[in-house]
Amino acid sequence: MTTDTTAPDQTPSSIIGRPKRQRWQPDRQHVPVIATLTLLAFMYGIGVVNYEGFDDIQVVLNIFVDGAFLLVVAVGMTFVILTGGIDLSVGAVIALTTTLGATLLHAGWPAGVVLPLLLLLGTTLGLAMGAVIHYFEVEPFIATLAGMFLARGLALLINRNSIPIDNGFWVSVAQERIRFDKGVFISSSVVIALLVVLVAAIVLAWTRFGRCVYAIGGNADSALLMGLPVARTRVAVYGISGFCAALGGVLYSFYTLSGYSLHAQGLELDAIAAVVIGGVLLAGGSGYLFGTVLGVLVLGLIQTIITFQGTLSSWWTRIVVGVLLFAFIVLQRVVAGKRSVQR
């Protein structure tokens, strides 16, 4: 019973005051994002070298124009994945939003009512899934799968067919272009998407809520014992994802000017892929929203390169997307994953 025979002053505090790091290296949490950024630049370089007109600034802007809705959905997905969850319902929520929106607009409802209603619907669905996940401890994969069936089913029930949208507000927003120069422009959807990204980035980095999202992803039990509002936060991230999916659906309907129950099939996979390629850990707790933006750009760039190539049949698109997805994942693994494998 004499573990403390040494006088305390004999042990300089420095020996325990030193972190385990040995040498300088980029912050481990930044490495995946840097890797994605490098690959993105590399791919862009390949595009510019190989295809005429690829270096046109509008090519890049078009990636944003075509990917605005995906970007918004991926932002919501980032919140969910950061807590260690997943949301499979986003594609179906888009379908529901467009179908319901188109139906209501067709029935003569004013856009000023329909728009908030759609966003409210998505948020509510998300919150409901979050509540089921948190309070009843149902796996996120399963709960959001049920949400996916529910949303897609509701959309099918409302209307099986594609419904065109001719509402004045919708059409004018859809056709609105912000022009920087001759032939250089973005759509209003891009502005909305970037706004969402900005707000989300601030929330994640600068607010108590955002940090709680990371804490839950790191260790939900600890977060609870630390007295953090785990229940509220976990339910809220699914609410955010639902909101983002609904907003993504609205942007999608701007993009296509139609509502269709089969819109955005498999979009949840694109969103998850974008988030993962952006370096967010699927297990939660690590990653940045900036990475998600890069991930969306990567997917967009892949599509663009294949379009520029022009000779590829549609099924090649899938294969190439798969191969590039593989390349990205493995490269990240090699660059960033070595230490975490062994631990």
């Binding site: 996979l269 998850i272 892929a273 993962v276 099924w315 090649w316 698109t317 899938r318 294969i319 190439v320 997307v321 798969g322 191969v323 997805l325 593989f326 994942i329």
Partner: peptide, 10 residues
Amino acid sequence: LILMVAGRGL
């Protein structure tokens, strides 16, 4: 996910 995407293409 990789094979899920690429497999149908294959």
